[in-house]
């Protein structure tokens, strides 16, 4: 009798251990890599190689950066929200990419990725540094306005004439949600490698097409800023292999 009991206990223990070891993954890691593009090609800085989408002339990009915030991952209604989730995406590196890595998220897999282009109103109205938010950085306007969400600066050249391009889009109303559904087979051994394109061209050639000569700067005009926000709302798209 006693031998039976002991045997059963051992069997249960080994079986249970096997069940948990071979069972579904308890955590998942994810790398989100953002590739700065102009149309289909990697973004090139500081060269007059781009056509004015809405008019005459060519332009160059000196600076392009944006805030991505409130990154949330979910599976079957289970949700993981990254704490202090404020990322400044800048692309002034040879690969013109920027990566965010989250390790050991308590989700068995990831079906959905959501984030915001811009900053939520609460953080946007605060001078508390958190994540990549820094009130002494280039992305801060001042504490009455908050942060610039998307910045693009450059130069437009028409013939011999050059003129500055300054697009600083902020204001809490102009944060835009991005929601990405992942294909079911994207995780490899508990690791998700998600690539996304950030197409700068969409900023001027989205729902509204912009002539850079006529609208060479956007800063505090609310209508202009909202128009560019609707354009950049569709700027980030996944590229599944």
């Amino acid at each position: 009798m006693r031998i039976w009991m002991t045997g059963l206990a051992i069997l249960l223990f080994v079986g249970g251990a096997l069940f948990f070891a071979l069972g579904p993954q308890r955590t998942t890691s994810i790398t989100l890599t953002f590739h700065a593009k102009m149309g289909d090609h990697p973004l090139v800085f500081d060269e007059f190689v781009y056509e004015n989408p809405g008019g005459r002339g060519t332009f160059r990009v000196r600076d392009f950066r944006l805030y991505l915030s409130n990154l949330t991952l979910s599976q079957d209604g289970a949700l993981f929200a990254e704490p202090d989730s404020y990322h400044l995406l800048r692309f002034d590196n040879p690969e013109t990419t920027n990566s965010i890595r989250l390790n050991d998220i308590p989700l068995g897999s990831i079906e959905n990725v959501r984030f915001m282009i811009g900053v939520d109103p609460e953080a946007n109205g605060s001078i508390q540094p958190r994540g990549d938010l820094d009130p002494n950085s280039q992305m801060a306007w001042n504490w009455e306005v908050g942060y610039k969400f998307v910045v693009m600066e450059g130069t437009l050249r028409i013939g011999e004439e050059v003129s500055p391009l300054v697009y600083h889009v902020g204001f809490s109303d102009n944060a835009r949600e991005v929601d990405i559904q992942l294909p079911p087979d994207i995780a490899v051994e508990g690791d998700v490698d998600l690539h996304m394109n950030v197409d700068v061209a969409k900023l001027f050639d989205g729902p509204t097409q912009v002539d850079l000569r006529k609208l060479s700067s956007v800063k505090f005009n609310r209508d202009d800023a909202a128009m560019l926000a609707d354009n950049y709302a569709v700027m980030i798209t996944p590229s599944f292999k």
């Binding site: 306007w141 001042n142 600083h168 800063k219 505090f220 005009n221 609310r222 202009d224």
Partner: peptide, 8 residues
């Protein structure tokens, strides 16, 4: 603290 914007 202000970048001028004649439009507004």
């Amino acid at each position: 603290m202000a970048h001028p914007d004649t439009k507004v």
